[in-house]
Amino acid sequence: MNLPIKFLPPLVWLVRVLVGAYPRWIGSVPSANQRIYFANHSSHMDTLVLWAALPHSLRANTRPVAARDYWGAGGIRQQIAQEELNVVMIDRAREDPDADPLDPLHEALTLGFSLIFFPEGTRQPQRLPGPFKSGLYRLAKAFPQVELIPVYLENLHRAMPKGTLLPVPIICTVSFGASLVLADGEEKDVFLERARTAVVALAGLDTVAA
C-alpha cells in the first residue's frame, strides 16, 4: 500500500539536523562517472547519511544497495527504499540457493547506475570497519571501468547504539577518499584488505578524537 506522500525529503532534512552528514572529499571529487561508493556500516542511518552527503545532481543516478530482509519488508520502509531511494535489493538470506545474490547489482551496474555498497555485509556497531566480504572483489572484477570510492561514515555507531530507539544528535562527517583500482591478477584477500585499509585511513584523517 503506497501512501501518496514523499517521505524522503523530510527524512534527509531530519538526518542533516540530527547528524549533519557533512561531506568531505579527500582525494576525489564529485563526478558523474560511474562509481561504487563502499562504506563502513554501523547503524540503520548509514544509507540515508551517505545519500544526504552526495550532491543533489548525483543522486538520481546513484542507487544504494539495501538488504531485502530489512528494507523489503513492506510498509513505509519499502516505499522509501523502492520508490524514493530507488535501491537495489540484495538477498542476504539467500532464499534461492541457485541465484547469485549479486545479480541485481550486476544488472544495475550494466545499466550505468552508480552504487552505494556496504562490504561488511551487516552492521558492525564500532568505530572501524570489520573484515570485508567478497562481494566488492567480485564486483570490481566484473566491472573494471567503475571507480571504487572508499567512504568513511564517522560517529554513527555512537548516535544510535544497538537496541536504542532515538538517535542522539552528533556530528557525522562523510569522508570520500581517492578511488581504488583492482590490479591485474590481484588476489581477493589482498584487494579486500587494501579496500578496508583505504576506509580506515579516512577515519584517521582530520577527524575529532573518537
Binding site: 549533519g20 560517529n155 542522539v168 544528535p169 552528533i170 556530528i171 575529532v208 578524537a209 573518537a210
Partner: peptide, 9 residues
Amino acid sequence: LREFIALTP
C-alpha cells in the same frame, strides 16, 4: 550541544 557531544568521548 551536538558539536560538544561529538567532541567528548
